[in-house]
């Protein structure tokens, strides 16, 4: 993987939760004192742990479970520690929660660095574009029917479960098909936390129960490429990539999907 097709990622949406927490801590500490500042951070952590629970229920992805415990334990620690509002004088229990929080944060960091907590949207788009040399543009907002693959409903649901669990795509189960929304890091919040329960203006791949595979690339994602790549070829390449993913999954070699995505060598935070 030498020539990057995607523009560099300068998106800072992923840093927003931490930034907001820090700002809140600063403001509350200045106006109400350090004790309230720490308490606010504790509540924000517990609130974020609830979001992680929602994300875990919606995706079944392991990293959200780890984030849930890390945030919850650290939030409790801050609330009951010496600086927190619920401090009872006991120093042992806060230490226990701090230790648990640290263990889970270290585990979460490992998952982040090893790309196990990474939404794979950029990897997918980068790989799909690698073979495309022509830049004739031709963008259209229409979905592109690509292929028909033999499958059963159970296999399709299993595939959806696998991709969701590994943060490859976010699936929507519909009456006669499954729509796999391609999610880039930093763009996942509205979907996984359930703020926005649709995939309008996003890129997706749908596979219906008869095996018809269709690709839709959003304008935003298309413009994220450095060049106006020939659109129908890009769509076809993306469709073929997902067809390959499905066959890998069907053979019981789902790990090959992740191996392939790792070939894109995209940063774990991008």
């Amino acid at each position: 993987m030498t020539v990057r097709k995607l523009k560099p990622d300068y998106d800072i949406t992923g840093l927003l939760p931490a930034t907001i927490t820090l700002i809140l801590f600063g403001i509350v500490s200045i106006f109400s004192g350090l004790k309230w500042g720490i308490t606010v951070v504790a509540f924000v952590f517990i609130l974020f742990s609830i979001f992680s629970l929602i994300a875990y229920v919606r995706t079944n992805a392991f990293n959200y479970l780890i984030a849930l415990f890390a945030l919850l334990f650290y939030g409790i620690f801050l609330a009951i520690s010496q600086g927190g509002i619920f401090y009872t004088g006991n120093t042992q229990i806060p230490k226990l929660f701090m230790l648990l929080g640290i263990i889970f944060f270290v585990f979460l960091s490992y998952l982040l660095i090893s790309k196990k907590a990474k939404w794979r949207g950029r990897d997918i788009f980068e790989i799909a574009a690698q073979e495309i040399r022509e830049a004739e543009n031709g963008f259209t907002g229409r979905p592109q029917p690509i292929d028909k693959i033999p499958l059963t409903k159970e296999e399709l649901f299993g595939f959806a479960e696998y991709l969701s669990k590994n943060l490859v795509a976010f699936p929507f189960r519909e009456a006669h098909r499954v729509v796999f929304v391609i999610v880039k890091m930093g763009k996942e919040f509205s979907l996984v936390y359930g703020f926005k329960n649709n995939y309008d203006y996003r890129s997706w791949i749908s596979i219906d129960f008869e095996g018809n595979l269709t690709v839709k690339i959003s304008q935003e994602d298309y413009l994220d490429y450095k060049e106006n790549l020939t659109f129908d070829r890009l769509g076809k390449s993306l469709g073929n990539l997902f067809t390959q993913f499905f066959y890998d999954y069907k053979k019981g070699e789902g790990i090959r999907i992740l191996d392939k995505l790792n070939e894109a060598s995209i940063s774990p935070f991008s």
Binding site: T140, P145, F231, D232
Partner: peptide, 21 residues
């Protein structure tokens, strides 16, 4: 029919073949 219409950079196709698709 329009769902299967070839993209701007794809090859032209006959109406009959698009209808078949």
């Amino acid at each position: 029919f329009l769902y299967h219409l070839p993209f701007p950079t794809a090859k032209h196709e006959t109406i009959a073949s698009i209808m078949k698709k």
